[in-house]
Simulated assay, not measured.
Amino acid sequence: MAGDEKRFKTAFDSLHALVYFVPEVDAALTGVGLRPGRMPYFAGRAAAMGAVGPEVVAATFYNFNPEVVARVIPRAWTLATPEQVLEARLDGVDKALTRLLGEHVKSDDVAEAAELAREAAAGCTGEGRPLYAAHAGLGWPGEPHLVLWHAITLLREYRGDGHIAALVLNGLSGIEALISHHATGRGFVTAAAKLTRGWSDEQWEAAEAGLRDRGLLDDGGALTEEGIAVRDRIEVATESAARGPWNRLGAEKTARLEELCRGLSARVVEAGAYPAGVFTQGRP
C-alpha cells in the first residue's frame, strides 16, 4: 500500500478484528465448548495452526504474557477440536457481518472488495510467516462477505508476522514492544496494555528498567533519541515487509480496495462492532 499502520488499521483491520469483539463469535465459540474469557481469543486465532501448545501461541502472538496463554492453551483443545473452533468462528463472523452490514452484505461493493482482497492475498508468501501460513492453508469460504473477511485476515496476519520479525531484529521482547509503543503516544495506555496482555506491575516495571538500561527510555518513561530510532526502524521494516500483496494488486486496484474497505469499515464501526475507542490504538 503502500499504506502505513494507521491506514491499514482504519481501512482494513477493522473488518477482520471485529471477530474479537462481536457477541456472535463469542457465542459460537463458547457454544462448541470453549470457556468464556480469554480462551475464545487464543483458541480462535490459533486454531488454524492445529492443536499447538502454549509456547507456539505465545511466540506467534508475541506481546501476551506466556503465563496467561498457558492458562487456557492446551486446555482449549480438550474442549473443542481446532476444526470445530474454526467452523464456529467462521459461523460467528457470518452472523456478525450479516447483522452489521444489513442488506449491504449482498452488495456489489462487498463482492468487488472480496475479489480485490483475494487477489491481494495472492501476493503474500508463507516463508517465515507462521500465522499467515496457517490461515492460508484453510479453504476459502463461498460467500463474498466471508471471502473478504478471510482475505483481510490473511493480509493482517501476513503484516503481523512481518512486524514481529522487525521487533525481534531490533531486540524488543513482547512486553518491551508494548512499552516502547506506548511511549510513542500511539499505543495502549499502560493500564489497558497490562490488563489485555496479562502483564503484572512487577513485570512491567522490570521491563521498563531494562529499556532504560539499554538507553531506549529516559527516567520519565519517554523514548530517548535511540528509542525513537529503534521504533522508526521497526515501522520502516514492517511496511517494507508488507508490500507483497499491494505490489501484486497494483496502485489503481489497491486504491479502489482501500476506498471500498474504508466505507465498509465505517459501516461496521457505526453499527456498533466495537466498544468506544478501540480503534484509536495501533499495533505494538
Rank of each mutant, 00 (worst) to 15 (best):
residue 176 E to R: 06
residue 38 R to C: 03
residue 247 N to S: 09
residue 14 S to D: 06
residue 232 D to Q: 13
residue 6 K to V: 13
residue 91 D to R: 09
residue 230 V to S: 09
residue 248 R to E: 13
residue 81 T to Y: 06
residue 261 C to I: 07
residue 144 P to E: 01
residue 216 L to E: 15
residue 29 L to V: 08
residue 23 P to R: 11
residue 268 V to N: 03
residue 264 L to D: 01
residue 189 V to H: 11
residue 163 H to W: 02
residue 57 V to M: 04
residue 66 P to Q: 11
residue 201 D to L: 03
residue 79 L to H: 03
residue 44 G to I: 03
residue 272 G to F: 02
residue 206 A to R: 08
residue 92 G to C: 06
residue 274 Y to C: 08
residue 81 T to N: 06
residue 205 E to M: 15
residue 84 Q to E: 15
residue 161 D to E: 11
residue 239 E to G: 14
residue 40 P to Q: 07
residue 136 A to Y: 04
residue 60 T to R: 13
residue 69 V to I: 15
residue 134 A to N: 11
residue 50 G to T: 05
residue 91 D to G: 07
residue 284 P to I: 06
residue 144 P to T: 01
residue 45 R to L: 07
residue 184 T to M: 10
residue 138 L to T: 13
residue 55 E to G: 14
residue 44 G to H: 06
residue 242 A to C: 04
residue 55 E to C: 10
residue 182 H to S: 12
residue 21 F to V: 04
residue 229 A to Y: 05
residue 101 L to G: 08
residue 137 G to P: 05
residue 214 R to E: 15
residue 3 G to V: 14
residue 266 A to F: 00
residue 91 D to K: 08
residue 108 D to Y: 07
residue 211 L to F: 06
residue 157 E to K: 04
residue 236 V to Q: 13
residue 5 E to S: 14
residue 247 N to V: 15
residue 123 G to T: 06
residue 113 A to E: 02
residue 171 G to T: 08
residue 155 L to W: 03
residue 255 A to S: 11
residue 18 L to I: 12
residue 223 L to Y: 05
residue 173 S to E: 15
residue 204 W to R: 03
residue 176 E to C: 03
residue 267 R to C: 04
residue 274 Y to H: 07
residue 54 P to A: 15
residue 99 R to S: 08
residue 69 V to E: 02
residue 124 C to L: 10
residue 6 K to A: 15
residue 211 L to V: 12
residue 229 A to S: 12
residue 172 L to Y: 05
residue 147 V to F: 00
residue 135 H to V: 02
residue 86 L to G: 11
residue 227 G to C: 09
residue 227 G to W: 05
residue 48 A to D: 09
residue 272 G to N: 13
residue 118 R to V: 02
residue 66 P to D: 09
residue 127 E to F: 01
residue 79 L to G: 03
residue 204 W to F: 15
residue 137 G to F: 06
residue 143 E to F: 11
residue 2 A to P: 14
residue 74 P to E: 07
residue 151 A to S: 15
residue 118 R to K: 10
residue 207 A to V: 08
residue 220 G to H: 14
residue 212 R to I: 00
residue 22 V to K: 00
residue 164 I to Y: 11
residue 43 A to R: 00
residue 39 M to F: 03
residue 258 E to S: 10
residue 131 L to Y: 08
residue 137 G to R: 07
residue 125 T to M: 09
residue 11 A to T: 12
residue 66 P to C: 02
residue 158 Y to L: 05
residue 107 S to M: 07
residue 21 F to D: 09
residue 239 E to M: 15
residue 101 L to Y: 02
residue 24 E to C: 02
residue 43 A to F: 00
residue 171 G to V: 05
residue 141 P to T: 01
residue 38 R to G: 12
residue 283 R to Y: 14
residue 135 H to A: 03
residue 214 R to C: 13
residue 146 L to W: 04
residue 173 S to M: 10
residue 64 F to M: 10
residue 143 E to N: 08
residue 248 R to V: 04
residue 262 R to E: 14
residue 150 H to K: 14
residue 262 R to N: 12
residue 283 R to Q: 14
residue 61 F to C: 04
residue 73 I to F: 03
residue 136 A to S: 15
residue 122 A to K: 15
residue 255 A to W: 14
residue 241 A to H: 12
residue 31 G to N: 05
residue 164 I to P: 10
residue 47 A to R: 00
residue 73 I to R: 01
residue 254 T to C: 04
residue 57 V to D: 02
residue 166 A to Y: 06
residue 191 A to I: 14
residue 196 T to M: 14
residue 185 G to M: 10
residue 117 A to P: 05
residue 60 T to G: 08
